[in-house]
Design a protein around this nucleic acid. Structure first.
Lengths: 233, 233
DNA sequence: TGACAAATTAAGTAGCGACAAAATACGGTT
DNA sequence: AACCGTATTTTGTCGCTACTTAATTTGTCA
């Protein structure tokens, strides 16, 4: 009685994965071609292809046409992050969300913003400084620049009812997104806005988005002390 | 003359993507079933499947058997990070890598480590404190716990020639990896090790790895001031 | 020997068909 | 109306074939 013993691509993936981490194939080594593995494991090449694609996505192996598949010489830890809309993040943690518009300025992009957007000359921007609150306490302070070339409708929006964060994510999907993480010390002004002591260590998420090389927005999300960002489960 | 006009799954993906962000389908809306889209776009269902799978991976839509495909009600920014071995990271930035073993202790897991590993009782661990250097200057200080149950061979390793970071990544691949990012203020001890002022804001990468629910290692990588983590290009 | 062209190789993609698995919808029974 | 089992629907997966594309290797000619 042969129970339905068809190999799933995940089985194939795990088997190859095990083979690599058992040392059968070391960093830089070339693996057999898909077709041979398929024959050996008695499955279709397409199944091996899917397994290999997954291993390639997860950073364990590298694949090249004609070159075959080889174990990455310099392995990396690859992780995926989900960054939700801030309102959603607060609510999912069980907090009551609030937000305050602090300042709203219209001016040309300064050098630093030009640099992050890879612009060669100043363009009109909207600068929005706002505070996200959780249960009435400061949660994230965001300092945002929005390209008025790309998002002219932003001028007429009332940013006190809906945060720029939320409006943009819902209405201006992007093609390209760069993230940058680091820590800063709270200066006097930040300390006051975030209701903490000057000098406190703050975790910063900097995000820049484009659609087809047209800049949309760049934002420094300066989190209140104690904030942690986790990889998605 | 009909040039070879077969649709690629990326074309299908982009078309659906555009349809969503043009507002034809809003958050929460249900998309047509794969088969219908395939017919409409004159391609095979498998092509649509691949396109949809990709959109699902990137966080734009959610798919459920029988439930169909719908636009995510709460969109997220999804990003992928590559964290290389520290030596590799330093060298790729053009720095000269060095590393110092600061302390090496054998003891049972304290409560905090038990918690991150989801252990119910203390187990023997190796604690390794080490400093990574770039051009002779402190780069990352790592405070690491290694499970001796899972990695007993660690006891006999000479951690002065090869860092625990490098040995583990090369020799102990993992199944599961949790990451956590946040900021801390340098205390007197950290300030001294990282050659900075007490109170400086430091970016911390905390990483915990398992293989099949057996804990391998957990490490706090405390970066020197100015360190930034970027999403992969 | 060196440079360019051609052949070869191995992954990538498209299509088709069939079946599996998971949700949901439905319908009957109490 | 509540509960439970069954049918249906829709995505997920596997296998097979054929063709495409990118690299590398080989071969040829100057």
């Amino acid at each position: 009685m042969t129970t339905t013993n068809r190999l799933s691509w995940k089985d194939v993936r795990d088997e190859i994965h095990d083979a690599i981490l058992s040392g059968r194939y070391g960093p830089g080594d070339r693996l057999p071609r898909d077709a041979d593995i398929a024959e050996e494991m008695k499955c279709a090449r397409s199944t091996v292809q899917r397994a290999m694609q997954d291993l390639s996505d997860s950073g364990l192996v590298e694949r090249r046409r004609k070159g075959g598949t080889r174990v990455r010489a310099h392995p990396v830890t690859r992780a995926t992050l989900d960054i939700p809309i801030t309102r959603r993040e607060v609510e999912q943690k069980g907090g009551r969300y609030g937000h305050q518009l602090i300042r709203r300025t219209q001016m040309d992009a300064p050098r630093s913003v030009m640099a992050t957007f890879e612009l060669t000359e100043p363009r009109p921007m909207l600068r929005v400084e706002a505070l996200h609150l959780s249960d009435g306490r400061p949660y994230i302070f965001e300092d945002r620049w929005i390209s008025l070339d790309t998002v002219p409708e932003m001028i007429d929006l009332d940013l006190t009812t809906q945060s720029a964060n939320e409006w943009l994510v819902l209405n201006k999907p992007y093609n390209r997104c760069d993230l940058r993480f680091y820590a800063i010390s709270a200066d006097a002004q930040l300390a006051e806005v975030l209701d903490t002591a000057p000098g406190a260590a703050l975790f910063v998420i900097e995000r820049t988005t484009w659609t087809d090389s047209a800049p949309i927005t760049t934002v420094k999300a300066i989190t209140a002390p104690g904030y942690q960002l986790l990889t998605r489960s």
